[in-house]
Simulated scan of single mutants.
Amino acid sequence: MDIYYIDRNTGKKEKEVVAGDRFLRWLHDRKSGATALELLIKRKWFSTLYGKMQDQPFSRKKIAKFVSDLSIDLTEADRKSIGDYRHFNDFFTRKLKKEARPICEALDAFASPADGRLLAYADIDQDKMIQVKGMNYTLKALFQDEDLAKGYHGGSCIVIRLNPSDYHRFHFPDGGIPHEYTAIKGQYYSVNPIALNRIAEVYCQNKRELTLFQSDEFGQIAYFEVGATCVGSIIQTYQPKQRVEKGDEKGYFKFGGSTVILLMEKGHIKIDEDIINNTNRGFETKVNMGEKIGGKANFLLTEI
């Protein structure tokens, strides 16, 4: 199965270069791969061990081929030379120059929290969230908290899938006050579309971290980071209960593609139409951290 997305800058459909494509297809298309996935690959110790290997000096040898195979633009990074990185994870979690990701400044603009391929849904049903066409999950299963889940029924959902080629730090989409994060234990399935089409409730099964973020303009946002195969760690760098501004860093993923999920309460955001239209057509939209992906809803809720 080839994976296509819409490049927002050009409006064109592009074919994704999948890191580890053969390995992923073996895991999900072959009986031997499926057995390895269930017995080994989805386990915490496997991803932890693999992640620790990417912290070793010998892993630097992988960087040049990784950059070449995935066409990564090194001019955006704060360190241009591959030789400036101590190991592979040092490169994978690289920071970018400030000018490489300008933040939309308008108060009513909702900024993308990460680079990645984005799907977005309005007027969501807490009991029928879309993973892929024909495969759903519930907010109760995602939150592991029924009362919290109910608060986002009828609201909006943004799912940003980070490809291994992407910048892997995630940020705040608005100014506000973030609370302490909650870690939810789980497995380490891939979040690539190949896996999403074959494994039910991946987001609810995988390890994830949840932060409730009281934003200035968009109400209370439920901010999830979802781990995946070979994601060594989710690292939070923000300070709980201290004010942040739009675009401030929240944290980063060590090696592996992964996912950020944002849930907004009803009546607080209007997601940009091109993103909604692409989602309805079955395509992710490629976005960069800091660019506008929505705005304040132009109506107020009224009590019934």
Rank of each mutant, 00 (worst) to 15 (best):
P193L: 08
P193W: 07
P193D: 02
P193N: 07
I194T: 13
I194A: 04
I194S: 05
I194D: 03
A195I: 11
A195L: 09
A195V: 12
A195W: 10
A195M: 10
L196D: 02
L196E: 06
L196N: 09
N197Y: 03
N197G: 14
N197S: 14
N197D: 15
N197K: 15
R198Y: 11
R198V: 01
R198M: 04
R198P: 03
I199G: 00
I199M: 07
I199Q: 09
I199P: 01
I199N: 05
I199W: 08
A200Y: 12
A200T: 14
A200I: 12
A200M: 13
A200V: 12
A200W: 11
A200K: 15
E201N: 09
E201R: 15
E201P: 03
V202A: 04
V202M: 04
V202D: 02
Y203Q: 04
Y203A: 03
Y203H: 11
Y203E: 00
Y203F: 15
Y203S: 02
Y203M: 01
Y203G: 01
C204I: 01
C204D: 00
C204R: 09
C204E: 02
Q205F: 04
Q205V: 05
Q205K: 15
Q205M: 10
Q205G: 04
N206P: 05
N206R: 08
K207C: 08
K207M: 12
K207P: 00
K207T: 11
R208A: 04
R208I: 07
R208L: 00
R208T: 06
R208M: 03
R208K: 13
E209L: 11
E209W: 06
E209R: 13
E209A: 14
E209D: 10
L210W: 05
L210V: 03
T211Y: 02
T211K: 06
T211V: 15
T211Q: 05
T211W: 00
L212S: 06
L212K: 11
F213N: 09
F213G: 10
F213E: 05
Q214W: 09
Q214V: 12
Q214C: 11
Q214R: 15
Q214F: 11
Q214A: 14
S215W: 13
S215F: 13
S215C: 12
S215L: 13
S215D: 09
D216R: 14
D216V: 14
D216H: 13
D216T: 15
D216I: 13
D216G: 09
E217F: 10
E217T: 11
E217A: 11
E217S: 12
F218G: 06
F218I: 07
F218D: 04
F218T: 06
F218Q: 07
F218P: 06
F218E: 07
F218V: 05
G219W: 00
G219F: 03
G219M: 07
G219Y: 02
G219N: 09
G219K: 09
Q220D: 08
Q220E: 13
Q220K: 12
Q220F: 00
I221M: 04
I221V: 13
I221T: 03
I221D: 01
A222H: 06
A222L: 05
A222F: 01
Y223A: 02
Y223H: 09
Y223C: 01
Y223E: 00
Y223K: 03
Y223F: 14
